[in-house]
Design a binder for these strands. Structure first.
Lengths: 145, 145
DNA sequence: ATAATAAAAGATATTTTTGTCCTTTATTAT
DNA sequence: ATAATAAAGGACAAAAATATCTTTTATTAT
């Protein structure tokens, strides 16, 4: 894989899409979301279930139901999505998997690796879910793979 | 997982260890390597087989045989190890898995993500296998997890 | 030549990730 | 109240990553 798991990729794409639709005042069903972000429907459903359980997104059952994201959700960082679906392993630990490796006992790769991870952390912590709506709306961007 | 697969982690640790031992003029058996870098022996054997096949390390069968790394190997970048065992996916592609995402059609995360990946690429391309020997030898470093 | 050693190669097993399907629960509209 | 809709939940399936075991091949020492 790339840097993130497929699960995390789907999750991010879906949340962006839901945010966009919520911004338009719409709730969105799993079918539409899955199509829009090009992910397997049933699998994505599980992922959204999880995000909903931790309160990152909201859901309503029944007719006119669907997924949406409330105002507080717009301010949450992407990091929360990643953590919700694949834990925080990407934010910590040694690049080579050495458990002793730390600031006091750095492995040979430590400093260079830290830079890379800091950048990822920065990206995920400083970017909020809501932040993309304007970009997504004004641009020719899709979330469809 | 972290950023790299377990396979890649084992591979890097093992190659460093082999490099170190080769620097001391020794060939090393799989058993010793696996113990030293704390990885499952039979699994690591497969990994080293692969690295040996692509010429990143050398091996000799029979008594006094084992793995070693020749002078040209010392100058190869870590990137080669990673590519040999898990391909080049870590060096390319969109952070969210969007196929259209590129310099011309960047996804919302594109620029920030690029920074992170550039740093990883830099680290893996600019660091050679041999480079750590001095550090490993003078320091109190282990490769044992 | 023979026995011992150590990696290569092949087959198989386990675990994790990814993916599907079916039933249940909540909500809405009639 | 009943039917229709849509997510939640549980059970199961396939694929990929991780791991083990057994046999074969090459090399060395006796």
């Amino acid at each position: 894989m790339g840097i993130f798991s497929k699960t995390a990729e789907y999750a991010m794409r879906a949340v962006f899409y839901i945010a966009q639709r919520s911004h338009e005042g719409q709730r969105t069903g799993i079918k539409e979301i899955a199509e829009a972000v090009n992910s397997p429907e049933a699998f994505l459903a599980k992922i959204l279930q999880r995000l909903s359980k931790v309160g990152l997104i909201q859901s309503i059952k029944g007719p006119n139901g669907g997924f949406y994201i409330d105002i507080s959700g717009f301010n949450r960082p992407l990091a929360d999505i990643v953590i919700a679906v694949e834990g925080d392993t990407i934010f910590k630990g040694c690049g080579m998997g050495l458990s002793y490796c730390s600031e006091e006992f750095p492995c040979p790769l430590h400093d260079e690796f830290k830079k890379a991870r800091n950048q990822i952390t920065l990206m995920l912590r400083n970017t909020t879910i809501g932040q993309f709506n304007t970009e997504l709306i004004k641009g020719h961007l899709t979330l469809n793979k």
